Simulated scan of single mutants.
Amino acid sequence: MARDFKEALRHRRTYYHITNSSPISDEQIKEIIDFAVMNVPSAFNSQSTRIVLLLGKNHKRLWEITKETLQRLVSAEVFKGTEAKIDGSLAAGYGTILFFEDKAVIEQLQDSFPTYHDKFPIWAQQTSAMHQLAIWTMLEDAGLGASLQHYNPLIDDTVCAEWKLDPKWELIAQMPFGTPTEEPGPKEIKPLDKRVLVFK
């Protein structure tokens, strides 16, 4: 359903209960990503965001990699909970979107504008966050549920090798998505008078 911008933002939530199905086509999912990449702003118009869409066996492979990596790093007891979360939620979805920032672009800007050298990596994170929000909101507006995960940097090298990606691409976040099977619970919103100040 097409909501106005404010309503779309209001309805964007984290969904952990998703299935391996989609109410829209793969082409429409790609169109959502393309739209965000073309229209979301970036500092100095850097256009440093890179996106990888994983569907089918590629989506499943990502979460196999994540489990294999974590199994080597945590205790067997802790891994049980991790495995249950991945199998029952993240890997159970229809696909995963990987968000990257191209460090080559960031480094070039650092060389060109040394005054802002330390700021460009921060601004790149902000650029990525805007892409994440835009895509997340549009996916939900199209009837999909998603969540945002951060298994980077633990899986970075293996992901780069698996899909033969540019090693200068820095993995920022992973967004598994699919058709929701349950509504999220109520969302706690802290008082606005502690978070927004107005001076006239």
Rank of each mutant, 00 (worst) to 15 (best):
D4R: 00
R10P: 01
R13C: 00
Y15W: 05
S22P: 08
P23R: 01
K30F: 04
N39V: 13
F44K: 15
N45G: 03
S46A: 15
S46V: 02
I51E: 07
E64K: 06
I65W: 02
T66S: 10
K67P: 03
K67S: 09
L73P: 11
V74M: 13
F79T: 10
E83C: 10
G88R: 04
A92C: 03
A92T: 02
G93L: 07
T96H: 01
D102Q: 07
E107H: 14
L109Y: 09
L109W: 08
D111P: 01
S112H: 08
T115W: 09
H117E: 09
H117T: 04
K119A: 10
F120V: 15
I122H: 13
Q125S: 11
S128I: 05
H131L: 12
Q132M: 14
I135L: 01
L144D: 02
L144T: 03
S147E: 04
L148Q: 10
N152Q: 11
L154T: 08
L154E: 12
D156S: 15
V159I: 13
C160Q: 15
C160M: 13
A161H: 11
W163M: 05
K168G: 10
I172N: 10
M175G: 09
P176D: 11
E183H: 06
G185V: 06
K187D: 12
E188V: 12
K190Y: 15
L197Q: 15
